[in-house]
């Protein structure tokens, strides 16, 4: 494992912990898109089915279990435990517009036409766009709490770091996965506008608020 991959994973872990801490400490899920979190739960569930078929390492298994577990805890917090604080009026992105095309694409463009492989491909494609309901919510309400911004920054950085990891692996290991790389690029590009706002506003102590 190279440094980019490790820091990327840690960034992903940090994002999830920030989100859980925000919800738990403030007893609120305000500003968080339940739809994006459902998509992430689907992403982890469909990607890590290989937990049942192959063992890579303790690190690999524990991270996978952590990601799946916390994604369900997050969805539970939003739709059950802290439901009264969930801002469903602003969480109106139509997820079927993501799931249906992504499902079709995974069916058509994959490495191997087998169930696990198609589900893996589906999860890679879906992850690349899963943040859209959350970004849509931020643009609709025109603001994001600082803690939500930190969460989004850590989550966005993770895939950007994976891009560096793939460049490294291409040069030093001859490893190249076109599906993951293209989806990773799409995913990172979707965050660019947010990254800009984060650097120009949040890091200077202001919260993100967009003109109405």
């Amino acid at each position: 494992m190279n440094i980019f991959r490790l820091v990327g994973d840690m960034s992903h872990l940090l994002a999830i912990i920030i989100l859980l801490m925000k919800m738990w400490k403030s007893r609120s899920v305000a500003g968080i898109s339940g739809k994006s979190q459902i998509l992430f739960a689907i992403v982890f569930t469909t990607r890590y089915l290989d937990l049942f078929t192959s063992f890579v390492s303790i690190y690999n298994t524990s991270m996978k279990v952590f990601f799946i577990g916390t994604s369900y805890v997050t969805v539970y917090f939003i739709y059950q435990h802290f439901k009264p604080t969930y801002d469903s009026n602003h969480d109106t992105f139509r997820v079927e517009f993501l799931i249906v095309p992504v499902g079709g694409l995974a069916f058509l463009v994959n490495h191997e036409f087998s169930l696990l492989e198609i589900l893996w491909t589906f999860s890679i494609y879906l992850e690349s766009v899963a943040i859209l309901p959350q970004l849509f919510m931020v643009s609709k309400t025109g603001e994001a709490e600082s803690i939500t911004s930190h969460y989004l920054f850590a989550l966005g950085s993770y895939r950007a770091l994976y891009l560096l990891n793939w460049i490294y692996r291409y040069y030093f290991e001859g490893f190249f996965d076109l599906i993951a790389v293209v989806a990773g690029c799409v995913q990172t590009i979707l965050y660019c506008d947010f990254f800009y706002l984060y650097i120009t506003k949040v890091l200077k102590g202001k919260k993100i608020s967009l003109p109405a």
């Binding site: 991959r5 994973d9 992903h12 890579v56 690999n60």
Partner: peptide, 10 residues
């Protein structure tokens, strides 16, 4: 092998 290396990532 290719398969294994891919699944090594998260």
């Amino acid at each position: 092998l290719e398969e294994q290396r891919k699944k090594d990532e998260l």
